[in-house]
Design a protein around this nucleic acid. Structure first.
Lengths: 203, 203
DNA sequence: GTCTATACCTAGATAGAC
DNA sequence: GTCTATCTAGGTATAGAC
């Protein structure tokens, strides 16, 4: 037994950990937090249940890591769009499209992030996640107000409405998400978002 | 042992059952579904855990009954307001106020109905509940479009945005809900709802 | 280091005493 | 009919073999 781990060992361990997180994410997206037992996750990763504890001190720690990774990606992507080029209203529209499209493409994960029953530790992360999301929307709304593209309003509530509307569409799995319906949905959703923020409908 | 239960016996049993439901509702509103164990509910009702099973075949059955009662009341109240007198836009505003005010007055229960982690049986009820809520909003929006007070739009999505916005405000318990803040919140919320439905801001 | 087997805990449900 | 005590299942976490 060497005093230090060799670089190869470290890489291998890190890879195993990443693999475990990826598999756990898939399981959560498919069956939800409540059904994602340590056994189910370990099976999915091809390891024994006990081996999970080589990488995480508890199930809750693994769940939180899974949530943070997935939520962080979403916030990052939305942030890039909303901080990108274009006037605030254009960015708002693109943001709604990106948010909704990503969610529709991976409904299971979106549901897990936004709404699925979860243990308290994950619930706390979710509150933070929703707060960050709302902060991003609110920021764009404020810019729009400052630039005169949007009327005076409470950006936080507009942000909540945007998050809520998209989430609500996802929670109820109505019918098959075919291409045409998705397109119409996005059109209507962006129109609603624009009205919600008080932008001219034909923007 | 009589062949039939006496009327007095029936009344007493019914009363005990109602009391149990009422206590369970309080417990759920206070600590959420996940913490509302059979023991906790029974304690709250002043009976033994085992006695719960004299009234309900399972914990899930009790939980579903609690949910249905509370959700039914909310849908009924909102329905009365939205089907009441006045033009569609006026009713929409009153509906938002009623929905939000009731939710803010009993945040625990509102959270339990809208978002709190719950077992699958309750989750299924919740989907139905949200669907009924959305149907009510959508109906008013359709009336507004038919009467020319509202522009053409997808009423379902507007309905989702309304439900989502109010729910979002509740999920995040920001600060103390004092009277002044509540008033401002309601003003902003109705303004957002009107914009969302495309009504003239000063309605 | 990873697996197997198991200990342990929580919470729902039941049976028999009173 | 209600309570006390108990049974059982499911799932987290650990200990020791390989």
């Amino acid at each position: 037994m060497a005093y230090r781990k060799t670089p190869a060992e470290i890489r291998r361990l890190e890879a195993a950990r990443e693999h475990l997180i990826a598999c756990a994410t898939s399981v959560v997206a498919e069956v939800g937090w409540s059904q994602a037992s340590v056994t189910a996750v370990a099976d999915s990763a091809g390891i024994a249940a006990g081996s999970v504890y080589q990488h995480f001190p508890s199930k809750a720690a693994l769940a939180v890591e899974v949530f943070r990774r997935a939520a962080g990606r979403e916030v990052e992507v939305l942030g890039e769009v909303l901080h990108g080029p274009g006037d605030p209203v254009e960015r708002l529209v693109r943001g709604v499209e990106v948010f909704a499209r990503r969610a529709l493409e991976n409904r299971g994960l979106a549901y897990a992030l936004l709404a699925a029953p979860a243990e308290p530790a994950v619930g706390a992360e979710r509150l933070d996640f929703r707060r960050r999301y709302r902060a991003l929307w609110a920021e764009v709304v404020r810019e729009g107000m400052a630039g005169g593209q949007l009327p005076a309003q409470n950006g936080e509530i507009t942000a909540a409405a945007l998050t809520g509307a998209i989430g609500e569409v996802l929670v109820d799995p109505l019918g098959t998400p075919d291409e045409k319906a998705t397109g119409e949905l996005l059109t209507e959703l962006t129109a609603t978002a624009l009205r919600c923020a008080g932008a001219a409908p034909a923007a």
